[in-house]
Computed example of a mutant assay.
Amino acid sequence: MTTSPALRTCGGRSGHKESAGISVVSQRLPSHTSTTLRQRRLRRRRRRRRQKRGCRGGAREKLIQAPHRAPLPSLLLANVRSLAHKMNELRLWDTTSNKITETNIMFFTETWLRDGVPDCAVGLQGRHCIRSDRTADCSKSRGGGLCICINRSCCTDNLTIAKHCSANIEFLMVKNRPFYLPREFNSIITIAAYIPPDANAKLAMTELHAAISNQQTQHPETAFIIAGDFNHSNLKTVLAKFYQHVSCPKRGDKTHVYTIIKEAYKALPLPELDQSDHISRFLLPKYHPLMMQVKPSVKSVKVWPEGADFKLQHRLHTNWSDFAVTDTVDPHTDIDSYTSSVLDYIKNNINDIATIKRITIFPNQKP
């Protein structure tokens, strides 16, 4: 019995013929079209691989991942010119910007606060604010004033060391013990300073130099951070070992940040706070701890095993007069030869009993 050609296309072999037909059609495509498709597939693979490879690094990314575990605290410096009138915008920054919310320490100069303004009026949620208002010791009754706001997630141990207000300079010193701090520092002293435009720069630097030198003598292992509006003054004229980190100056703007660590911060400009005539600055910590800068060294030391004291006592229980007899020349004993022979005998016994152990010494390890 013969089958028709129509019935031959039915059954399980029809799909095979259809797939074969599709492959034939694909083979009939122009060569440049297939090459273009192949290039697109390779390009997609490369893009996917490039996006997934590695991880983002840098000081900014590390600060985002762990904002309160940086080697040095992140800073915000602003000349506010009346802090009470800028609180609405400052609170808006604090609630909408993650960079401002996670900032560890804020410095405000020219707060223009008086005793009649309570702390709750200029306080920020989750921060400990320390203020130093202008007093009658200054020749002026208006203007001036300093404030330091410290994030409680970073530090809760804060101690006000000094408050100074004169006709030439105002400064506020606060000692901080953050939760996380490199081993080479035992604390941080933050200093907010303001020098009026008509002040005597030489006298102002003399007063600030005396206060900082006194604290450096009392706290030699402390990191100093000095921030404020210096106007026509420069701290490096009296403290040459300090470094200035604000590299984005504005015309007529002399807000500076000084530390004793080279390349400790990177300054980033921020908008003016409301109607202030000074731009704000965010300082990103770039300091690498000493443990990451220097490689650890390996040292060999002698270790006394268990029961070494009894072994050493047994070996040293000897007749020491035998050494004197061997070192006697005529009727006299050579004291130098006698001493060296005794010491060599003791040293050899110690080397036989003690074991050598290799230990790793890190650069930030305390003695």
Rank of each mutant, 00 (worst) to 15 (best):
V294D: 02
I350Y: 08
I148M: 12
V303P: 03
G12L: 11
I350W: 06
M292Y: 10
T156K: 09
D119S: 14
A264I: 01
R281K: 12
E61T: 15
T328G: 01
K236W: 07
T318R: 15
R28P: 00
N158S: 15
D119L: 14
E272G: 08
V246S: 13
L7Q: 10
F185L: 03
R281A: 10
K241D: 14
M205C: 09
I169K: 02
H314K: 09
S233N: 03
R41G: 11
Y258G: 03
D133F: 00
E170D: 11
T111P: 01
Q215T: 09
N231L: 00
D119W: 02
S23A: 12
N200L: 03
G145Q: 01
R13I: 08
Y258L: 03
N186L: 03
R177F: 11
L159G: 04
P5M: 07
S97L: 07
D229G: 02
P220E: 10
D336Q: 15
L273K: 07
G11I: 02
S31N: 08
W112N: 11
N186H: 06
E170R: 00
S233I: 01
I359S: 00
L235S: 07
H332V: 15
R91P: 01
K302G: 10
Q293D: 04
N351A: 08
A84Y: 02
V122N: 06
W93M: 03
E221P: 03
S97A: 04
S300I: 13
A70T: 06
P367I: 04
V238R: 12
L159Q: 13
A227D: 05
D274I: 06
L208H: 05
V174Y: 09
N168S: 11
C120M: 11
P5Q: 07
K286C: 11
A162E: 15
S280G: 04
T318F: 13
P196A: 04
N176C: 15
W93L: 04
I105F: 09
S276D: 05
V301T: 12
T95Q: 06
P305L: 02
A223I: 12
N231S: 07
I161H: 02
D327V: 15
T259S: 14
A354N: 04
A354T: 06
G252T: 10
N214D: 08
T103V: 12
I226F: 11
S26A: 08
D198Y: 03
G54T: 02
V301Y: 10
P5S: 08
A167K: 08
A211V: 05
G307C: 03
N104W: 09
A162P: 04
D352K: 06
S297D: 12
P249F: 00
R142Y: 14
T109Y: 01
A192I: 00
G15R: 09
A59R: 10
I195K: 01
R56Y: 10
L159K: 11
Y265P: 01
R47H: 12
C120L: 12
I191Y: 02
A240F: 11
D119M: 13
Q365W: 05
G116R: 13
F171G: 01
H245A: 03
A162G: 06
T326Y: 15
F282P: 06
G12I: 10
L312Y: 14
R50Q: 14
Y338R: 08
P305Q: 05
T318G: 09
I169G: 03
H245P: 01
